[in-house]
Amino acid sequence: MSDFSFGTSSKSKSAPILVVGWPGLGGVASSCVRTLSQGLQSESVSALNPDPHFELEDIQIKNGLIFQGNLPKLIFQRVRSASNQELILFIPDTQTMDKPLDLARAVIRTAMSTFGIQSVITFAAISGVLEPEEEPIVRFGTTDFHSGEELAKAGIPPLRSERIVGLNGLILLAAQELGLKGICLVSEIPVWGLHSPNPKATRSLLKTFCSLMSIRLNFDHLNGQILALEEKMAALRDAFSNESGESWDSDNGFHLEQEGKEIESAIERGLSKVELDELENFFSRAKFDRSQTPLLKAELDRLGVFKLYEDRFLDLFRDLS
């Protein structure tokens, strides 16, 4: 993968690459940039003013006295990697829910004017139907065809159909608007650990990134965390299966015996195996994350099978209440 030339051209061999990781699912993207910051020689060189994008949400109390709380930090750091490819890390404390695309544009404009960046790489995580013991597969999304070709030649498969929610995706849209190339490296995490830090996904993403950039980075410090998380997720999976009588299939998600009639009826209505598998993914996510239920409802309505799955859909609310 060392022949990868993203961000370089005959006009600018040394243009720095902006590497971004906003806090998100499993803390994966943020963990990636913070691990790069800690593992490589980096220095804070600039910061984005949070005032236009964030409002105060808290106060601090010390010895009984009230003080104004702090706005999030939005820090730029410079890294000179072993391959002489300069990296600019953007390390934000949090995402904003108010006009996030405006914040993404501000980050890109600041990085362009201050550091002369011409390309952006982000990280992201999505929930997936995989076992806790499995190694996550890293896939990519990109703003241009040629970068996609290079990534495919490097052995990284593309995302076929997926949504990247939040600023880890929106910042690539902002980059594209301003004429920059952008790549998002994406890893799946099991539904059993959506709200826990996922060092295994972090390691998979960073191994891919470091291989592309010809960077050496030691990941041994993550091994203990990975083992502990695997055991926790496996215990949750096994306890769920024992209590509910449901079984976990790494290809298709949850399959209950009583769902057989639903699936047969859905097939009779013309649903493909891909559509059925995607529905199972939606149900799996909604089982552990109630915020996913509107997306599940919309998909059932789109396919015209809500009545067929209505009882199972309502059971989600009984399970999660």
Rank of each mutant, 00 (worst) to 15 (best):
residue 2 S to A: 03
residue 3 D to S: 05
residue 6 F to Q: 08
residue 11 K to W: 00
residue 13 K to S: 09
residue 14 S to P: 01
residue 15 A to D: 03
residue 16 P to Y: 08
residue 17 I to M: 08
residue 18 L to F: 05
residue 25 L to D: 06
residue 28 V to I: 11
residue 30 S to V: 13
residue 36 L to I: 05
residue 40 L to D: 07
residue 50 P to Y: 03
residue 53 H to E: 08
residue 59 I to R: 07
residue 60 Q to D: 14
residue 62 K to I: 12
residue 62 K to C: 04
residue 62 K to D: 11
residue 63 N to S: 07
residue 66 I to H: 00
residue 67 F to W: 03
residue 69 G to Y: 05
residue 71 L to V: 08
residue 76 F to K: 01
residue 78 R to F: 01
residue 79 V to T: 02
residue 80 R to P: 02
residue 80 R to S: 14
residue 82 A to V: 04
residue 89 L to D: 07
residue 91 I to P: 03
residue 93 D to T: 09
residue 97 M to F: 08
residue 98 D to L: 12
residue 99 K to V: 07
residue 100 P to E: 09
residue 100 P to G: 07
residue 105 R to E: 15
residue 111 A to R: 08
residue 117 I to G: 04
residue 120 V to D: 13
residue 125 A to F: 04
residue 126 I to Y: 05
residue 132 P to I: 06
residue 134 E to Y: 09
residue 147 S to P: 04
residue 151 L to Q: 06
residue 155 G to Y: 02
residue 159 L to M: 12
residue 167 L to G: 00
residue 169 G to T: 09
residue 172 L to W: 01
residue 174 A to T: 05
residue 184 C to S: 15
residue 185 L to V: 01
residue 185 L to K: 03
residue 188 E to I: 00
residue 188 E to Y: 02
residue 191 V to A: 14
residue 191 V to I: 15
residue 192 W to D: 11
residue 195 H to R: 12
residue 195 H to K: 13
residue 198 N to G: 07
residue 198 N to H: 15
residue 203 R to Q: 13
residue 205 L to G: 08
residue 212 L to P: 01
residue 214 S to V: 02
residue 220 D to W: 02
residue 222 L to A: 01
residue 227 L to K: 10
residue 227 L to S: 11
residue 229 L to C: 03
residue 237 R to Y: 00
residue 238 D to K: 14
residue 239 A to V: 11
residue 240 F to P: 07
residue 242 N to Q: 13
residue 254 F to W: 12
residue 258 Q to Y: 13
residue 260 G to S: 11
residue 261 K to D: 12
residue 261 K to R: 13
residue 263 I to H: 07
residue 266 A to M: 03
residue 267 I to Q: 15
residue 269 R to M: 05
residue 273 K to G: 02
residue 274 V to A: 06
residue 274 V to N: 07
residue 282 F to K: 10
residue 289 D to M: 10
residue 295 L to I: 13
residue 296 L to M: 08
residue 299 E to V: 00
residue 300 L to Y: 08
residue 302 R to Q: 11
residue 302 R to G: 07
residue 303 L to G: 09
residue 308 L to Y: 05
residue 313 F to T: 10
residue 316 L to G: 03
